[in-house]
Structures are given as structure tokens and as C-alpha cells.
């Protein structure tokens, strides 16, 4: 028997989770699409955004400052990481790239643990967004509703950057044909640095806006990273629309399955990924180009 009120609420949960996954996955996917590097430290970027935001909140008490600080900090971390380390790995194998980003992820997580300890930190939502809102047919936490809007705006902003700016054109051209970009005479390295920073910032932004929902701890990124992989595989590597679609699908699968038995939500997510791999090996919206 399905309780329809519960079903709709769970769909809403799925939407919020899905939007968040979509945002994080877009960051991962544009970095990979442009630079050809799968950033295993992406989960750590999500975590760093949360902590940087928490620090800012701690000193200013302003949620908006926290969001800005969290995002900018991760942008800087991304740019610096690219400049110092990732850059020398473009010419090396995918496997080496995976190893180094994996190692960087550990360093980020353990550094945070070193300075902040393992206890979770809470960032409360801004006062106007406290409490619950009635949607007529159900009640829903106000901040989670707002989160849906915030993430949607962020995704739109990312869309704008990718599809309406010169940088975005280059990035998308790079995803489709990296050789072409090389021959355009563009300073590819500068672009790469920026893309890595923006991709990381997407995760960092998600990390701080999600902090009021679940509070932050050094290892929050790991679980998110694995879900992000599934999203990217479902949506298609390197595809921004794919990441958004994949995120929403993953969010809904997790939520709707948990209506019946939360223990199986992850298993169902995996079943979906397998189905996609069998039926559309390059993901729902991916192209055969990159591997």
C-alpha cells in the first residue's frame, strides 16, 4: 500500500538531494570533460566548502558571508591545486591522475581533522529560513525548500557560464574536441586552471549550503563522492545536462526506495547504474567521444 502523502514528500526529498548531487556532479564532470582528469578529491572539496563556510559563520554570524567565503575558498584551493600539482599530471596516465587526486583528498580530509577534530560542526540556516512551511498538502522544512531554490540558481549560473560566455564555449568545445581547443591558440593552461577552480567551487558551494541540513564533519565528502560517480555514470561523463538529469534520477531513486526499505536505496541506485551501462554505455546524455 502506498501512502500518497508520503510518496509526494519523498519525491520532494529526492528533488532536494538530486539537485544537490546535480550541482556537485556538474563540477566533477566539467573538470573531467575539459581537463580529462577525474578528481577523486572532489568529495574533499565539498567538505572544505563546508568548513570554510563554518569558519566564516563562526566569525561573522552571517550565513551569506559563510556561503561566499566557503565558495571562494574552495575556488582558491582548486586553482592552487591545479597550478601546483594537477598541471604536471596532464601528460601522465589516467591512473596516475586518479592516484594523485585520491592522495590529495586524503590530505585535505586529514588536515581538516587535524585542525578541527572529528566532532561535527553545525551551521544554522539564516533565521528567516528556520522552521517549517506548509505547502497545503504537506509540511516541509523551510530551509530545505530554500535549498532547492538556491541550488537551482547555482545550476542556472553554471549553465550561464557554460553556454553564454566565451569561457563556457571553450570548455564545451574542449569537452567535444580537445584537439580543436589546442589549435585555437588559447592559453589552455589558464583555462584549465579556471575550470578546475570553478568545478571545485561547485562542490564547495554545495558543501556550505548543505551544512545547515546535515552539519559537517571531515569525512562527509566520501559518501557524496561515491554517489556523484553514480550520477556521472548515469548521466554521461563530461555532460552538464547529463549531470543534472543523473542527479535528479539518483535523488529520486534513493528517496522513493527508502519509502519501502531504506536499506535498499543504495542497491537500487546501483541497479539503475548497471541498467544504464548495459543499455546506454555512454550514459543517458553522454557521447562516445571521451573515455
Amino acid at each position: 500500500m502506498i501512502n500518497w502523502g508520503n510518496f509526494i514528500s519523498q519525491c520532494f526529498n529526492g528533488l532536494v538531494l538530486g539537485a544537490l548531487l546535480a550541482l556537485i556532479s556538474s563540477g566533477l564532470t566539467i573538470i573531467y570533460g575539459t581537463l580529462g582528469v577525474l578528481n577523486l578529491a572532489h568529495g574533499a572539496m565539498f567538505m572544505l566548502g563546508g568548513y570554510a563556510g563554518w569558519m566564516a559563520y563562526h566569525y561573522t554570524g552571517s550565513f551569506i558571508v559563510a556561503v561566499i567565503a566557503g565558495s571562494l575558498f574552495v575556488l582558491v584551493v582548486g586553482v592552487v591545486t591545479e597550478r601546483l600539482i594537477i598541471r604536471s599530471f596532464y601528460t601522465r596516465s589516467h591512473e596516475d591522475q586518479l592516484l594523485v587526486t585520491f592522495g590529495l583528498g586524503i590530505i585535505f580530509v586529514e588536515t581538516v581533522r587535524f585542525f578541527f577534530g572529528s566532532l561535527s560542526k553545525a551551521v544554522p540556516p539564516p533565521p528567516p529560513l528556520l522552521g517549517i512551511t506548509s505547502l497545503g498538502f504537506m509540511f516541509y522544512p523551510t530551509y530545505r525548500l530554500a535549498l532547492l531554490g538556491i541550488v537551482a540558481v547555482a545550476l542556472l549560473a553554471l549553465y550561464f557560464v557554460l553556454y553564454r560566455t566565451r569561457l563556457g564555449m571553450i570548455v564545451r568545445a574542449g569537452i567535444e574536441d580537445s584537439v580543436m581547443v589546442d589549435s585555437l591558440g588559447i592559453d589552455v593552461y589558464r583555462i584549465f586552471m579556471l575550470v578546475f577552480g570553478i568545478g571545485a567551487m561547485a562542490a564547495g558551494f554545495a558543501g556550505i549550503v548543505n551544512a545547515p541540513v546535515v552539519s559537517i564533519a571531515p569525512d562527509v565528502g566520501e559518501a557524496i563522492l561515491v554517489q556523484t560517480f553514480v550520477v556521472v555514470v548515469i548521466g554521461g561523463v563530461g555532460s552538464f545536462p547529463g549531470a543534472v538529469l543523473g542527479g535528479l534520477i539518483a535523488g529520486e531513486i534513493i528517496s522513493i526506495t527508502s519509502m519501502f526499505d531504506p536499506g535498499y536505496s543504495y542497491v537500487m541506485l546501483f541497479v539503475a547504474m548497471t541498467l544504464v551501462l548495459v543499455l546506454r554505455p555512454h550514459g543517458l546524455l553522454g557521447t562516445a567521444g571521451r573515455e
Binding site: 555514470v233 536499506g263 548497471t274 551501462l277 548495459v278
Partner: peptide, 28 residues
Amino acid sequence: IALRRTGIYFAMITVAIAEVFYFVEFSP
């Protein structure tokens, strides 16, 4: 399943599958 793809896809799929094993082992 995993070898349907190579490179980073392969890495990501193996992570996801292993995670499912963890969940399945732990609860069901």
C-alpha cells in the same frame, strides 16, 4: 559489468559496486 568501460569509468564503477557490497553485507 565493470569491464564494459575502461579508464575512469572503470574506476568509478568499481567504487560504486564495492560500496553496494558493503551495504548488502552490512544489512540484508
